[in-house]
Design a protein around this nucleic acid. Sequence first.
DNA 1: TATTGTAAGTTTGTCGACAATCAGATTATC
DNA 2: GATAATCTGATTGTCGACAAACTTACAATA
Lengths: 251, 251
Amino acid sequence: MGRLAPVRRASTVDLIAERLREAVVDGSLPPGTVLGEAELAYQLGVSRGPLREAMQRLTAEGLLVIPRRRGLAVRTMTAEDVRDIHWLRARIEPELGRRILTLPAAERRTVLAELGAEVKRMQRALRKDDARALGDAYLDFHRVLAVWGGSLRLARMLGTLLIETRLCTFSMFEHFEVHRDLVPEHVAFVEALAAEDGERFELLVQAHLEAEVRRLLAEPEASTEDGADRLLAETPDEPQPLDRLDLPEGL
Amino acid sequence: MGRLAPVRRASTVDLIAERLREAVVDGSLPPGTVLGEAELAYQLGVSRGPLREAMQRLTAEGLLVIPRRRGLAVRTMTAEDVRDIHWLRARIEPELGRRILTLPAAERRTVLAELGAEVKRMQRALRKDDARALGDAYLDFHRVLAVWGGSLRLARMLGTLLIETRLCTFSMFEHFEVHRDLVPEHVAFVEALAAEDGERFELLVQAHLEAEVRRLLAEPEASTEDGADRLLAETPDEPQPLDRLDLPEGL
DNA sequence: TATTGTAAGTTTGTCGACAATCAGATTATC
DNA sequence: GATAATCTGATTGTCGACAAACTTACAATA
């Protein structure tokens, strides 16, 4: 008989954490935002207790920062973070690709179908010049890799890295930008997987991620001196940027 | 003028989380342990608020599990977890080795010295037949790799994986065991790094980790039917083991 | 004018309490 | 005798409040 998946009611903390993650991903909480607990709790319609618990969780994921006595702040990514994140993704994603290629044919077809669907979403977004939708489809494309990669922990890691990638964009630019290379690049990804060419997939992914780093770290548009300030934030002369305040805790 | 490192007072949550991590690592909180919040808070001398926040953080790290209305439980690792953890480590640690080899010579010497010191600790522990100390030195050896690997995120990940590795041991066996292969294996690791032979280092590490998996998943001593039960926990017929209750949250 | 000292205001960090919920034991029923 | 229903006790999930700590602004002094 078919086993039933156990029901899993999300706790309030789960809900809050998810809501916060969403807000970070969709840009309603841009990097550097500082929020008071009371205010935020009121907005979410919960008390400060559960909110603080959720904050701790997002802190462990590296999305939030808790400056002492200052509520919470959305992490601002430095150039070093950008490099670290993309370097890591360049190791993880090809590995996931390889694992996906070892899947039974049926499942592999499913993966390819899902990836194809995301590429289609990207194409539609591009036609509409909808940078936001393009970015969302981009994230979901890579999430598919995480889900099918066969390693719980690697999936979780990549999931976090993808959100951090989004934070990189927000940290470096004021607003989304459509960049047209994205679609052909991802078409190539799918083709490489379809051809069961793991090596080619790896090279393509790495090329893509390196290009992303270059794009993100290129001098931001001169207009937004704000962006310049943020790049500066990684120079060692700052009075210790908020972002790194409680990182070392992790290890 | 020399910049002063900013003072960083640990918050109560940090302290609690650290204490809990320690307890997990040193075995005073074996896998499967269920604890009531009130009791634990009393033991730690704090109120339930901060304790719950720390719990959320350890949950995000995958060390704890929060069964609904049951306080908290130390995660029990399944055979699948054992494989996942070691598989991941087999990807991460060689990568860290490679990065360490690209370090300036002076720093590389420091790393080798630190690794050598840990190996010495392992040898001393082995001579005394002190399995606990051997395990601790083992953890610290690999932590050195994490610290010097040059990637904050990868370091954090490996740090967590190492604690999980310890949980694997506790999940599979009732007590520590001295196994003598460990020391020569780690001597070889250091030698490979000293010879700047990244490839050899990779092979050695992978061999070691595969051996560990075999050792951990070998039928536990017949005496401990408890261990057998735990192995069973991963079969799909259980009514959902506590361990996996709230994992999917991560991604 | 720059710098230090002071004070007020705001926010967090922590705690205690209440109510809803669940697990386990007991009892009733088929 | 086994299953289902009920009940009770304990524990969590959530909230409100208090006190300490920090930040900011202002004033005084060199």
